[in-house]
Design a protein around this nucleic acid. Structure first.
Lengths: 143, 143
DNA sequence: TATTGTTATACTCTATAACTATA
DNA sequence: TATAGTTATAGAGTATAACAATA
């Protein structure tokens, strides 16, 4: 019972720490950088090829209207194009443009600067521990 | 050189994973729940007592106007009060109200449900790895 | 002048509700 | 009816620029 209380507090701290690290990552956006969600969509399109808005929404665990807004922003910026699917006229395929591909590469490079510096400031032990936690983080990220 | 490229991609994934887990935590807010930043402020006020907006902004790594908006929301909800400091008339002390204290306890409990469930779904190995990464996360969170 | 707090404004991301088009 | 996409609207969180009050 005492153990339970301690565990709850530990979980709390872990949860708050993850949110805080994420907030710091976000706050270190570079000038002309693209937002988190937009970047993540570019990332998925690069890895998996063209996807529908519904598929993207599921991958990001957001609602279709949220993803639609994100896709609108990317389209207005010329980073993706919408194409009607040939097999099902309801479906739309979101595809990376060459400009989107270039921005993805550049933005990831910019984003990595702060984070990689932070990682470099960890001790070898801390770094190894974070590396070992990668599978757990993958599972918590939910695919 | 090949190793460098792989490392960059690994850092990228780690960064994106952390952001994604944070997004999932946020999306699992309960009804009537308070936002991330507001909750974090309540957390600090509970642990450290009354603090100025500037101090809170520094702790959260956000700008003073951002913190001001967060504090406004908490004040409108009756969860904190602003008091003029006696020693320096420029300063404002933000203090938790009894209602804020109650909401903090309740909200943390609600928030823990989803995350603790997720943690419970990890294998013992994954769970231990995440636990071992806690010091690294603390450092990345920047205090 | 420097510091503290604040307001004005704008952008990103998120959600729910409701609508259109296609299957 | 069910599914895919979208629009309308709203709220939280963040930022920069500019201003007021006090030290």
């Amino acid at each position: 019972m005492a153990g339970t209380v301690v565990d709850e507090r530990d979980d709390d701290e872990l949860r708050i720490l993850i949110q805080k690290v994420a907030r710091r990552i976000r706050s270190n956006r570079a000038e002309g950088d693209v937002g988190d969600s937009q970047l993540s969509v570019l990332f998925y399109l690069d890895v998996r090829g063209a996807l529908t808005p519904t598929e993207l929404a599921a991958l990001e665990h957001v609602t279709p209207p949220s993803m639609n807004r994100t896709v609108n922003g990317l389209e207005e910026a010329g980073l993706i194009v919408r194409e009607r699917a040939t097999d099902d006229a309801r479906k739309v395929l979101v595809r990376l443009t060459p400009a989107g591909d270039r921005l993805l590469v550049e933005t990831r490079r910019l984003r990595s600067v702060w984070f990689s510096d932070e990682l470099a400031n960890l001790t070898p032990t801390e770094r190894a521990a974070l590396e070992a936690a990668r599978p757990a983080l993958r599972k918590l990220a939910g695919g």
